[in-house]
Write a protein that binds this DNA or RNA. Structure first.
Lengths: 146, 146
DNA sequence: CTACATGCAAACCGTTTGCCCACTT
DNA sequence: AAGTGGGCAAACGGTTTGCATGTAG
């Protein structure tokens, strides 16, 4: 297969869902695909424009909603009043937010995941999703000692 | 001048923090205090106006921020793009959100709380807070009267 | 060629704020 | 009487949308 534009796994997902693939969507897909953090719309737009200046912020909004509805990306709300995104193809994880630096650490704990399912069931619900964020302070060396 | 509004536990907290107690703040405190759900600003305003029509929405915003900063209320973001509040004096709990009706159910699970603390520690953090929301669909088998 | 996607700017919506008057202390 | 709080409406910031044009299929 020829490589005119860089092909991403998201591209394939889009095609599989039958959505029309424009250059903008390809660029945004590539940005998401090659990000290992949780960029917000503005940042995604910035990264997209670096690849192709023709991408407008409105298209970023529209495309991310499209991707989200298609289950291609996951939208987060870390409490900054701005949506943050990451590829849904990344393995599931939750987040620890450093309340001092704002840094985001990822983790996954299957025991908690199991418990959540059970709790939901106990209350008469089928779990369709969850959000768990731990907020904390980094432990200093002297804290560890005591 | 007039002292027509009843005294609430939040009132006392406010006084303890040395904040000036106006009629509006008392009304809003009373609304929060007597709510066992998670009303948003508009709903709090509605309830406040029912007690005293003189309360403006701007004051509701200002007062709730004040209360939040003072640790008197807890602000939630259940993903509707609107802040929801509840009294901080209520015992700790997390939430299950019915993705179909938006209804909010409260629960508390000490096993998960323990695990969260451990996970944070494992990653070098002291847990200072957490947010956990389970999203799910009601399992309906008996309440099907239509 | 047609239907859908994009760019632009205006509209939107929850929230914040400036200004000036009212009220608490 | 001094100074904070409230009401109103305008400002704000992130997000959505109407319209005319561009483009994938």
């Amino acid at each position: 297969m020829t490589f005119m534009t860089k092909q991403t796994s998201i591209d394939n997902l889009c095609l599989a869902k039958g959505m029309r693939m424009t250059e903008q969507r390809r660029v945004i897909a590539r940005v998401i695909d090659s990000s290992d953090d949780h960029p917000d719309i503005e940042e995604i737009h910035r990264r997209a424009v670096a690849i192709d200046p023709k991408v407008s912020i409105a298209t970023v909004y529209r495309t991310l909603r499209l991707f989200e509805d298609a289950g291609i990306v996951i939208k987060h709300d870390f409490g900054n009043n701005r949506a943050c995104f990451e590829s849904a193809s990344r393995t599931h994880h939750d987040h620890i937010i450093d309340i001092e630096s704002g840094q985001v650490i990822e983790f996954c704990d299957s025991t908690i995941e199991e418990l959540q399912k059970k709790i939901a069931l106990k209350h008469g619900f089928v779990l369709t999703g969850h959000k768990m964020e731990l907020y904390g302070k980094r432990i200093q060396d002297n804290d560890k000692i005591k």
